[in-house]
């Protein structure tokens, strides 16, 4: 949507969740969200159990809930979609606050809101308790090696490139230019073009600098911390409880 993605999410801390190796947290997050998504949609108590489990994890991490709350705004476009759903979906009609809406759409909206919210909070917790470079190191061995290396290079230079874009904007504004409507797009697009040339040339310089330090096409491993069986056991407790919840919800429904 209109908002940028450049906000910083990491919340400095030393809790159990912060200290846990990133790979354990990533695997736990993926399994947890999968279990949440696989929960049958009308079993609302199951979402409450999942929320409780997630709440315990947030509490242990000592990340203030308000900190996560503010960053849940990325969800807003889909909240709007969920609110529209009961009115556009087909199926049996039902009364809600004096308005006739689709029963099925209402259920879908409820479960969409619950699942999306649980997913966002879980992902925010990972981002808040893990440094970006640790998240990428934690992906080693889970994703193709070259993909992880591209990610590592991207995150390493992300602040450099977005700062460059910011400086270009300040330069435009200091010359009295502020874009207000589509007639100003050519100027912005020229800026985007110049920004591409600068990013690409920076890539070439970085590549040459790497070559001069002996780069042969392989970067050394990124991972620094080793996950012990205990870490895995603690981390996997979260998705395990969500899976048990989802399984019992299926049995009941």
């Amino acid at each position: 949507m209109g908002a940028g993605h450049g906000h910083r999410l990491h919340y400095h801390g030393h809790s159990v969740v912060h200290r846990m190796p990133a790979q354990c947290k990533i695997v736990a997050l993926v399994l947890f969200v999968l279990a949440v998504v696989a929960t049958p949609r009308t079993q609302y108590w199951a979402y409450a159990v999942d929320a409780l489990v997630l709440g315990v994890a947030v509490n242990v991490s000592r990340v203030p809930p308000a900190y996560l709350g503010k960053r849940m705004l990325v969800e807003v476009p889909f909240v709007v979609f969920a609110l529209v759903l009961p009115f556009v979906a087909v199926g049996e009609r039902t009364e809600l606050l004096g308005v006739t809406v689709s029963q099925q759409g209402l259920e879908a909206a409820g479960s969409l809101l619950a699942k999306a919210t649980l997913g966002v909070v879980a992902a925010l917790l990972l981002a808040a308790t893990t440094e970006p470079r640790d998240i990428i190191a934690g992906l080693e061995g889970k994703l193709p090696r070259q993909l992880v290396q591209i990610m590592a290079m991207m995150v390493r230079y992300l602040d450099v490139t977005s700062d460059q874009l910011r400086r270009m904007r300040i330069a435009r504004e200091s010359r009295g230019f502020v874009a207000r409507n589509p007639r100003h797009w050519p100027v912005l697009a020229q800026g985007a073009g110049a920004f591409f040339v600068r990013s690409y040339e920076r890539g070439e310089r970085v590549h040459l600098a790497m070559l001069s330090r002996g780069y042969t096409g392989q970067l050394p491993g990124l991972r620094t911390d080793i996950a012990r069986p205990r870490d895995w056991a603690v981390a996997l407790m979260v998705p395990l409880s969500a899976s048990v919840t989802a399984a019992s919800a299926w049995l009941i429904s």
Partner: peptide, 8 residues
């Protein structure tokens, strides 16, 4: 690949 795709 790694540096160029990373910067792009």
């Amino acid at each position: 690949t790694a540096p160029m795709a990373g910067l792009v």
